[in-house]
Amino acid sequence: MCRLSFQQNREGGELVITLENITKSFIQEEKEHTSLQNINLNVNKGEFLCIVGPSGCGKTTLLRMIAGLDFPTNGRIFEGETEISCPSRERGYVFQQYSLFPWRNVLDNIAFGLEVKGLEEKERYQKARKYLKMVGLSQYESSSPKELSGGMKQRVAIARSLVNDPQVLLMDEPFSALDVQTRHKLQEELVRIWSEEQKTIIFVTHNVDEAIFLADRVVVLSHGPGKIIKTFNINLNRIRDRSTPEFLNLKKEITSLLEIEL
């Protein structure tokens, strides 16, 4: 009950994720090393939030804590009203590395979440096929992950997370290993899926261009220890044109902000 005050943001929208004064330290060579300091962040329902920051500033660490794969040294993280204590199907995670189960074909990879939930095979496959179609890979349903390109693997990983219909989709530089053309294509697809499915997405990247293309709001982290230095609201129409002056100005501004940090 005491948490009700956090339930609504200024515009009265619903909060999905709340980070309260998060600090994360690691012990490295017997020295305490703070990688994130005093992070306060609210993520609204349906929002596309991007977190950018220099390499090693703690982006992955932050996302892992939201997922429940890691824990803050200080501070608390909430999903809705519940404090996050472990991973959950409500917080889907797309990893930077390829993470498909290599012994399962594409369809069985996507159906994994439904399988562990105990759904019947027929229902499982029916739903999995819907998401497979959404990422445009219907003809690959019985392929092995080995046979897929990097971009296709990440598409399947996205479908695998979406099939659980999670509250939030957490994405850690999912496109960073891809070539520019593929990356741009997947960014467009992601924006389309996001608006169709009305998901909340927290997307980590060190690519400023990517962040501006995708996000409603871009949070910029500083380096060592990571703190939020600035937040940008991006009010450009989607699908965004990278060559407009607004886009380029924002890119310049955020990039220079990050360069000061390095």
């Binding site: 997922a67 429940g68 991973p87 889907g92 189960f101 994994f112 562990v116 990983a157 695998r160 659980n164």
Partner: peptide, 21 residues
Amino acid sequence: KVLLESAYTLGASNSQVLLKV
């Protein structure tokens, strides 16, 4: 590790992660 963590974030329990991953 990424396979185990994927399974957890997809909703698998400990024993499911053991048996299915």
